[in-house]
Amino acid sequence: MTAAATRLLVVDDEPQIRRFLKTSLGVHGYDVIEADSGAAALRMATTARPDMMILDLGLPDQDGAEIIKRIREWSKIPIVVLSARGEEAAKVAALDQGADDYVTKPFGMNELLARLRAALRHRLQEQGAEPVLKLGPLQVDLARRLVTRDGQEVKLSPREYDLLRQLVIHAGKVLTHQHLLREVWGPAHTHDTQYLRVYVGQLRHKLEADPTHPQFITTEPGVGYRLRLDE
């Protein structure tokens, strides 16, 4: 084992999925270890000390959100969950418990790798976040509260700026509606998604070239929003 290799714990009860993940992620330099149940996952999370984790939400023995909660009690390792379409509620629950991101099954390898990279980068960022985010023509300077597009300053209301700031801090990562509402409007408004719809719309108008076809702030149907980073 080389020191550089990221140790990745794959938790899925389907051996075919574990096999395919182990093989393809191994090619990309991950050191993959496997667990086939929630109990095994919890055990290996402590004994094998993985650097990150892929967790299937459909485990037969334990609820995915519960496993995340138990792990989050003592560990901050990035967790990407796997779940099927139509199970938005489960995804949101997992994210609320502290999962970093999700991938909808069936998924392509590109998508999974992107999520893994984003989650890992985010953890590294937390240790010393860059104050300036550059995204194509867009530049956000969190220290100076300055947003520019093609060098021109974009005037944002305080709420718009708070919303953008949340997305920038967690760039590349999905943020649930509840998370954004709580951070921007306060805990009393976690169900008022209409604010989000309106403000995200306004942000897009100010930042995007074609607001009906946004490139930076993307919608995650039924879950939340994401500031997309160029891969």
Partner: peptide, 16 residues
């Protein structure tokens, strides 16, 4: 069905 508030443009975009 949920009864959220939706921006139609947003829904059309994700579908597209």
């Amino acid at each position: 069905p949920k009864r959220d508030w939706l921006q139609v443009a947003e829904v059309v975009d994700t579908a597209a």
